[in-house]
Nucleic acid binder design. Structure first.
Lengths: 186, 186
DNA sequence: GCGCTATATGTAAATACTGACATATACTAC
DNA sequence: GTAGTATATGTCAGTATTTACATATAGCGC
């Protein structure tokens, strides 16, 4: 099974969801470090069902189209449990902005400085958003978010990764912009 | 043109290289935030030459197979210069380990703690390696590494991103492992 | 001589992912 | 009424990337 399958199982392990629900979640939460469009999710759900990792039931709704709510099976749970402790393949993060920084010495320094300040701002905003979520989680869910055996730990751990990531990213963008501005008017 | 094309142009803007050289570099340096195999690089070089962004000359070698050394053209340089200051599309980092952390509450805490400590160690080692490179760069190349209009800035900026990234990653892995161990023997 | 590694360049098949096409219900704002 | 948005589920074509296949030179150790 591929990574996307485990991403979906990870969400279904917490609550039963429809393909549409999963699509929404894959833009936030887990989606901060894994994303997928509905065109990937629906076929993957079919494959997971084929493999016996999930089942679905059709839920009829008034005033809305019917939906298929997917539930993780015992096999799905044990496969997920196994996967979690297997070492992941070495990860090479792909980041176009670092690539741009690599060639920034060729560019117009003012334009480039503007770009990196804007990016710094974007990451600062994302960081603020994450910090808000963290405060909310800690207040609403209490000490459970830090309990590694609680389902609340899932989102909290991912969130902490996001906070560290965004903090570092903002810092780096501003450093690049600083260097650019330092040599802008010599 | 796609991102890989600009990654290659970014390297060729500093020095002329063969496809094989580029393949080696795409495992390190720029490769820390962008990677590609030779099976992607050779066809892309052909496309770049088709578009007039690079040219090549065959260099005959004794005791080794002949090679094609690629050089960036004026068009290539100006395309690269333009691209650098264009805002990149929003980047969703994909990280399987964060996904695993998301489902870690289901796993055996001892196995999981071991995994996250190992990962922390890997990132600590990578960090040490980057720090070494940074010291070397600062000593060998002097103040130029901080000059945003110097070609030495390229690798130095990417390196600084790597250092911040690895520091943050190690910190997070250890935090996850701490939580796991805290509730291991209750 | 034989296997291993490094250098050197390519192609082809398979997989993963994105973007566009396709359809249907029903509420809301104009 | 009608245009837009949210809910809901799918497929398909194209792009990006990985893995495997394919070939050739030449040094090194056994």
């Amino acid at each position: 099974m591929k990574t996307l399958g485990y991403a979906i199982l990870g969400l279904l392990a917490q609550e039963s969801l429809s393909g549409y629900d999963l699509t929404q979640l894959m833009k936030g939460r887990v989606g901060n470090f894994w994303s997928a469009r509905h065109s990937q999710i629906y076929p993957e759900l079919a494959r997971l069902e084929d493999g016996g990792y999930v089942t679905h039931r059709v839920v009829e709704q008034r005033e809305r189209p019917d939906k298929k709510v997917y539930e993780i099976t015992a096999e799905g749970l044990s496969a997920l449990r196994e996967w979690v402790t297997q070492p992941p393949p070495p990860n090479v993060p792909r980041d176009e902005l670092v690539l741009k920084a690599y060639s920034v010495w060729l560019a117009d320094p003012e334009k480039a400085a503007r770009l990196f300040r804007e990016e710094a701002l974007r990451h600062k905003e994302q960081l603020a958003h994450y910090e808000e979520m963290r405060t909310w989680m800690e207040r609403e869910r209490g000490e459970d978010v830090r309990r590694a055996d609680s389902p609340w730990f899932a989102g909290y751990a991912a969130l902490r990764r996001g906070i560290i990531y965004e903090r570092g990213y903002e810092e780096w963008c501003n450093w690049v912009a600083d260097q650019l501005e330092k040599y802008m008017h010599p």
